[in-house]
Design a protein around this nucleic acid. Structure first.
Lengths: 233, 233
DNA sequence: ATTGTATGAATGAAGG
DNA sequence: CCTTCATTCATACAAT
């Protein structure tokens, strides 16, 4: 794309203050700010440095995604462990997965020890993927949905997939606005011209900004894919 | 971000065996393993030392990127040279190529030889393709309108950037699994406790195993949380 | 010690 | 939202 033009530093990078505010907002429950929210956030943050709406947008997008994936990873691991244990018990019945594959191992040491972890009951965990069950193209990437471990035929269920989502209630636009307001007062329009991430900043004397009237609140009503909109409220 | 190095022990560093396996996998065509692949790779590699999913993930990410960038640089240089030569010749006729004509300078230097692997994809591309018509939450929508406009459509080469992408077909999970299986017999669970990069290790006698035939029916189709099942009608 | 390089990790930006 | 790419930061290690 951009041909490494020497002009303006291409990528936005949040100043410490901006980052902090963003994080605080996120913690407060904002996950997917809508247009007006983004705009306000942007204009607020723009006080601490150059920033655009899309930066805010992307930030939330990425932050949310990565937070989630982190969680997923964690859960996935736990799950895996649990499954392992379960499977270990089942190994009584399935001593060796796909014995006919084993002659590929020449070395005596390379036996089941090689795969301490997984070995699904009735399916080869060795070359599953595209093999029998046949799915999973490969365009996917890191921990998808909870490391989605293949469930053979046992119930095992994928409780994890959404319990997390269920856990975090939606509480967006409730009080997030007030925090747009608090949190440090903006320093003089410090236009950091450094390539990226001017790590400057002691924070200037606090000063309370005006509250902007909250109109937007959560009427988002995105009857989109997954996010279950607040039932009644 | 803020948390000063959350992970207690420093960075992960692949043991020689791990690295080797990873590289072998990469060579075999794996570039962007999906969740389950990563999972398995991880659990396999974990035999040779501490390793996490994200390590595998990052490794492939970085390796691919750097390989690419290396290539790019090389090609870029070649291109530059050729362009210069061409321009020198053309200078007879065009004292200075107008900037808006620049994208006409592309020299077909990149040869398909560079990408040996790509196999024939007769694979069906069943895309789940989100069920409904236009929805998408408001924020996203807004984004589209808001800064979708800025599409300056840079010219000035980047020829390599995507022609490569085009060239490389997707051939992932075809035969990568076979290597999960082969490659070295695990040494005693060498738990390297050194801060990072236990460069120790004589590697156990490697041996190349043969490939087992994999019926590589890779259909994507993993319907999980959000992706509504393909309409089927 | 200083500088250069390789690479794990992180994250902004898109694409779809 | 999910995936992928490009860039960048940080650090270990090598070469000087």
């Amino acid at each position: 794309m951009s041909p490494a033009s020497s002009s303006s530093s291409s990528r936005w990078c949040p100043t410490p203050e901006q980052l902090m505010i963003l994080e605080e907002m996120y913690r407060s429950g904002i996950r997917t700010p809508n247009a007006s929210q983004i705009q306000q956030i942007t204009s607020h943050l723009s006080f601490y440095g150059k920033i655009e709406g899309k930066n805010v947008f992307y930030w939330f997008q990425n932050h949310k995604a990565r937070e989630r994936q982190k969680l997923r990873r964690k859960l996935g691991k736990q799950l895996q462990l649990q499954q392992q244990q379960q499977q270990q018990q089942q190994q009584l019945y399935y001593p060796l997965p796909l014995p006919h594959l084993f002659h590929y191992f020449d070395s005596p040491a390379a036996s089941p020890l090689l795969f301490p972890q997984i070995s699904s009951p009735n399916s080869a965990k060795f070359l599953p993927l595209q093999g029998g069950g046949g799915h999973e193209d490969a365009s996917a990437q890191m921990m998808k949905y909870t490391w989605k471990v293949e469930k053979p035929s046992e119930n095992v269920a994928e409780v994890e997939t959404d319990n997390k989502k269920a856990l975090m209630g939606k509480m967006y636009g409730r009080d997030w606005m007030m925090m747009v307001v608090d949190l440090v007062s903006p320093p003089p329009p410090n236009n950091n011209s450094s390539p990226c991430c001017a790590a400057a900043a002691h924070r200037p004397p606090l000063k309370t900004l005006e509250l902007f009237p909250i109109t937007a609140t959560n009427l988002k009503e995105d009857n989109a894919t997954t996010t279950p909109p607040p039932p009644t409220n």
